[in-house]
Design a protein around this nucleic acid. Structure first.
Length: 523
DNA sequence: ATGTGC
């Protein structure tokens, strides 16, 4: 496949005077390794496949598949290979891969898909990530981008959103009529009816059941161990955005010509205004992650389990602590889905205030990128799939699609960095090789601290076209406070998208260009 | 990411 020449990479530790552990990727002819690299200890090798969009990497602990353009692949931080090598030491791992937006995280890279047998396998809080259930949600309006041409109107909209959507640190949500106990047990089913308004239901789309029925069933007795303080904080935080890369964005979409029929079937049209939300399980998921990780760590120490990275936490699925984590994780998935729903509910209120009560706000989809759960695999049977910063994108016809999306595949929601485009995609049959995982966003290229040191506020302002009629209006008065979220902190999302389309994992249905955004920040 | 952790 593809007409580009095959290339090979050497993943190597160089021994030099200053360092003996620097891993480097060399593009080279494998036959000449020994002659050219006298001071190099071969750590692993990578072979390009599928026209250089897929790389099969052989590491000491096992095999890793990396989906990326050749350029992205060769620019990867060596630490991601070290991290993969540690993760591959967890027993009985069936499969591990990286998406092109991969970058270093705690214990496991963000951008990882890792698979075990669902009965005899392992679960790892490190390969779920600390923001359990974090994900994306998109709502479709009946507004056109021309309706938002006036920068003053975009400002008015952002002001209206600020009034109804808590986004400053420590700011509390205002849902005292919602019982948190019902939310973590039943997800959206735990919400009072008033929060599921009829007008959410799109006229065209057949049903919202894919989202509204989201419910992660688990052994609810684990909830008894959660301390009062966590219940209290998590309740106050319901419907709040959170900080970091979380956002709610108003975007205008452009339909990809080759997928126009899918776009129309989903209710998307050229120039349409959509609202994209990125948030997670807030303090509830944070508590689950922290408490489970320390409980499992104790078990690991007792049994002498572990890899070279002490921060890589894992336990057998059948072990009591492993099961406990899975149960608690599902409560956090319920929290996260409901949290995004309530953020959308508030956004809808703001839109109705500015554009009137006829403003539609139907749900396109809600999709997580930090979780682990059971899936069916045609050859392996029941498997336990972890996705940390990876999005599941099912193709047309896959029976795990929610009914309304069975014939098209479901929307896969991929955020870009601030000021750059986001994407609505659909999975392709080629994704089967990767358990249908695709990228989850642009992927960080520099740390928050490094970004604050290197990027100037002026660069961020330019990216947002501040001061022009086309300005992407942001709620934060001080861009300084969210400088670590500037596009210069991230990889180019277009190249990430090119990687997954090139590899045959997914196709673009719509490109979403930002018009306004709200973000949380430290106060 | 997190009412972060010293």
């Amino acid at each position: 496949m593809g007409n580009r020449p095959m290339a090979s990479f050497l993943v190597a530790y160089e021994r030099s005077a200053t360092s003996s552990k620097i891993c480097t990727l060399y593009e080279m002819n494998l036959e000449r390794i020994n002659k050219q690299f006298m001071n190099t200890q071969i750590y692993g090798t990578a072979i390009d496949e599928q026209g250089a969009f897929r790389h099969e990497v052989k590491l000491p602990s096992g095999d890793l598949t990396v989906y990326a353009t050749q350029q992205l692949f060769s620019s990867l931080d060596y630490k991601v290979f070290d991290m993969a090598n540690n993760n591959l030491q967890i027993p009985d791992i069936r499969y591990m891969s990286y998406t092109p937006d991969v970058h270093v995280g705690v214990g496991t890279c963000i951008g990882t898909t890792a698979v075990w047998d669902a009965r005899s396998g392992y679960v790892s809080p490190s390969i779920v990530g600390s923001d359990i259930g974090c994900g994306m949600r998109v709502h479709m309006t009946n507004l056109h981008k021309d309706d938002l041409k006036d920068v003053k109107l975009r400002r008015k909209l952002v002001k209206a959103i600020e009034k109804v959507l808590p986004m400053e640190a420590n700011q509390r949500g205002h849902y005292s009529d919602i019982r948190l106990e019902h939310i973590v047990r039943k997800g959206l089913h735990g919400l009072p009816k008033k929060y599921i308004p009829d007008s959410y239901t799109p006229k065209k789309s057949t049903s919202l059941t894919h989202v509204e029925s989201s419910k992660f069933a688990f052994d609810e007795s684990v909830l008894e161990l959660v301390p009062d303080m966590t219940w209290h904080r998590a309740h106050r935080q319901l419907g709040t955005l959170g900080g970091g890369n979380h956002f709610a964005e108003i975007q205008a979409i452009e339909i990809a010509e080759e997928n126009r029929s899918i776009a129309e079937a989903w209710g998307l049209s050229d120039g349409q205004i959509v609202v994209m939300i990125h948030s997670g399980s807030r303090a509830w998921g944070g508590y689950v992650s922290q408490m489970s990780s320390s409980a499992i760590l104790k078990v690991m120490q007792r049994h002498g389990w572990g890899t070279s990275d002490p921060k890589l936490i894992f336990a057998p699925l059948e072990h009591a602590e492993g099961r406990h984590y899975v149960n608690m994780m599902y409560s956090a998935l319920n929290y996260a889905v409901t949290n995004r729903h309530l953020i959308a509910y508030a956004m809808r209120e703001a839109f109705r205030e500015v554009f009137g009560s006829k403003c539609e706000f139907s749900t396109l989809y809600d999709l997580m990128h930090n979780y682990a759960w059971e899936e069916h695999h045609p050859e392996l049977g029941r498997v336990f799939v972890h996705r940390k910063g990876a999005t599941r994108a099912l193709p047309a016809g896959h029976t795990d699609n929610p009914k309304p999306y069975l014939t098209t595949g479901h929307p896969a929601l991929i955020p870009g960095s601030m000021g750059t485009a986001s994407y609505i995609m659909v999975g392709q049959p080629g994704g089967a090789d990767n358990y249908y995982s695709i990228c989850h966003g642009a992927g960080r290229i520099r740390s928050r601290t490094a970004t604050k040191r290197l990027v100037k506020v002026e660069d961020f302002e330019a990216a947002l076209r501040v001061g022009t009629e086309d300005e992407i209006v942001v709620n934060q008065r001080s861009l300084e406070s969210i400088l670590d979220e500037s596009p210069q902190a991230y990889k180019n999302v277009d190249e990430i998208i090119e990687s997954v389309t090139g590899a045959g994992l997914a196709q673009v249905v719509a490109k979403c260009k930002p018009l306004a955004a709200v973000k949380g920040a430290k106060s």
